[in-house]
Structures are given as structure tokens and as C-alpha cells.
């Protein structure tokens, strides 16, 4: 440990390795974004050059905005992600509270039953999920996706939140009971505000996989009016595969929202991971 502080060579080596890997991590994103602002000729002539007054062009973005309905896709992705997170957090917190707070017959079994889904991927049941969604008429609606992502997110949410709810002081809850608060009020008024950091962690963990998922939109909601941004860009790029300007612009537009979310929530995400919420 101290050797690193004493020996400048070690420090340089550490920075060298980290810089090298940072470049590897960022290079593809960088290349895609800079080339999306260039003319077709410049993309091929000097792929690594920054756009200048000569090679700058927004033709790709024009094609994308004219041909693809990216605002609609973005809106669909927003609805699905926010809706799923809302239900994961609400239902997950309620179940976690029941498991953490009350002793009742079957508590342990119920906890294990809900934890099963942490390790078993929901995709295995896709054939039957599609059949069910067709029967209930939910196929090609955003509700199908919201239900699936809620079910997928609940196990880990219940697991993490119940760990945190066990730490909420009993005195506080009992004081509330003496004051005549109902169990529902104790949950919503006293406990929920105290576990807000844990809820944020759960939200951030679930947000990115839901936003990025391709499998369920492809299978449950492929219709034009309910396409998510991930599926929409996949289909768009597939159709315009020879139009490099359009493909690069579509990729950049798809990167933009996730990067914005990441910039906003990265501290929360990293704190969540490093605080050992997923041991």
C-alpha cells in the first residue's frame, strides 16, 4: 500500500494502465459520435478526425428524424421504464416491509419463493409469457412490457429492500403504533422515507437493463406504435444499413439518453454497488 505512495514508478504504471483501459472503453463511443457529424466522404476518408467546417454535416440526423419516429420510441421507452420502476418500487417495498416487519407463518418460505427469481432468468418462460399476453390481449401494448419488467425486477428489489427495512428502528414504529397510526400509515409515512436511499439504488439497478432490453420488446411489442428506443434503433439501423450517416446518427441518438441518465445517476449507481447492496 505505502509502497505505491513511495514509489513514483508504481503510480505511473497504475495511471498508465487505467488510462489505457479508459481509452479502450471510450474509443468506440467517441468514433461513433464524431463521425455522426461528418459528411459521407469524410467518414470514410478520415474516420478518426474530428469534424471541421469542411466535413461537418447533419445529413444523418436529418434522415433519422425524417424516417424514424424516434420521439415516439423515446416516449415509449420512458413510459415503460418509469412505469416498471414505479411498480417494482411500490410492490417491492410493500412486500419487503411485510417480510421484514411481521412474524407470520410462511414468512421464510415466502421470502425464499420471492428470492428464486434472482437467479432464474425470466426469459426462460418467454413462450408461455407470449401465449398469456396474446390470450389477455396485452400483446403489442406497453402494459405487457411493464408487467414483465416488474415481475423481473421484484425479486432483487424485495431482497435488497427487506435488508434495509430490518435496520429501521423498532422504537420509531412502536411510537407510531402508540400514537394510533395504522400499519399502512407506518409503512408509508415512517418507513418509506427512511429507506429512500435503498429505493434509489434499486431504481438505478433496474433502470438500465429495462431501458436497454431488446428481447421482450422484440417478442411482446414489435408493433410500430409501441416500439421502444432500443428496438426502434435496431430496426432502423437494419433498414438503413448502407446509409452510414443515418446509422451513425441513429447510434448517437440512442447513446444520448442513457448517457444523460448515467451522468445524473452515476453517483447513486456507484454508491449502490460499492455499499454492498448486491452481496
Amino acid at each position: 500500500m505505502n509502497a505505491a505512495r513511495k514509489n513514483p514508478f508504481n503510480t505511473y504504471a497504475a495511471h498508465g494502465a487505467l488510462i489505457l483501459y479508459t481509452l479502450i472503453a471510450l474509443f468506440p463511443v467517441f468514433v461513433i459520435v464524431i463521425n455522426s457529424f461528418k459528411t459521407r466522404k469524410a467518414i470514410f476518408r478520415e474516420p478518426l478526425a474530428l469534424p471541421n467546417s469542411d466535413s461537418f454535416s447533419l445529413i444523418g440526423y436529418e434522415t433519422v428524424l425524417k424516417q424514424g419516429d424516434f420521439f415516439l420510441y423515446f416516449q415509449n421507452s420512458m413510459i415503460v421504464t418509469v412505469g416498471s420502476l414505479f411498480f417494482i418500487l411500490l410492490f417491492g417495498a410493500m412486500a419487503a416491509f411485510a417480510l421484514a416487519e411481521y412474524r407470520f407463518k410462511g414468512n421464510l418460505i415466502m421470502g425464499l419463493y420471492l428470492a428464486l427469481g434472482i437467479m432464474i432468468p425470466i426469459r426462460i418462460g418467454t413462450v408461455a409469457i407470449l401465449e398469456m399476453m396474446v390470450q389477455t390481449g396485452l400483446v403489442n401494448t406497453l402494459w405487457a412490457l411493464i408487467l414483465v419488467y416488474t415481475a423481473q425486477g421484484l425479486p432483487l428489489a424485495v431482497f435488497i429492500l427487506s435488508e434495509f427495512m430490518r435496520q429501521v428502528s423498532d422504537d420509531l414504529k412502536n411510537a407510531g403504533r402508540i400514537d394510533g397510526l395504522s400499519e399502512y400509515r407506518i409503512f408509508f409515512r415512517l418507513v418509506l422515507p427512511l429507506v429512500r436511499p435503498a429505493m434509489a439504488t434499486v431504481a438505478v439497478f433496474n433502470m438500465i437493463p429495462i431501458w436497454n432490453d431488446l428481447w421482450f420488446p422484440l417478442i411482446l411489442a414489435p408493433a410500430e406504435e409501441v416500439k421502444t428506443l432500443t428496438l426502434g434503433s435496431q430496426v432502423f439501423i437494419g433498414q438503413f444499413v448502407t446509409d452510414w450517416n443515418a446509422v451513425l446518427s441513429a447510434l448517437s441518438l440512442a447513446i444520448l439518453p442513457v448517457m444523460a441518465l448515467y451522468v445524473i445517476f452515476s453517483r447513486q449507481l456507484i454508491r449502490g454497488i460499492t455499499s454492498g447492496a448486491v452481496k
Binding site: 472503453a25 471510450l26 468506440p28 463511443v29 461513433i32 438500465i208 431501458w211 436497454n212 431488446l214 432500443t230 434503433s233 435496431q234 439501423i237 447510434l251 440512442a254 447513446i255 442513457v258 448517457m259 441518465l261 448515467y262 452515476s266 449507481l269 456507484i270
Partner: peptide
């Protein structure tokens, strides 16, 4: 960590 947040499509 940035590549991890990007979708498979990108």
C-alpha cells in the same frame, strides 16, 4: 463503466 450502460444494439 460507460460501455456497461449502453444497449447491446449500440
Amino acid at each position: 463503466f460507460i460501455p456497461t450502460i449502453l444497449s447491446f444494439v449500440i
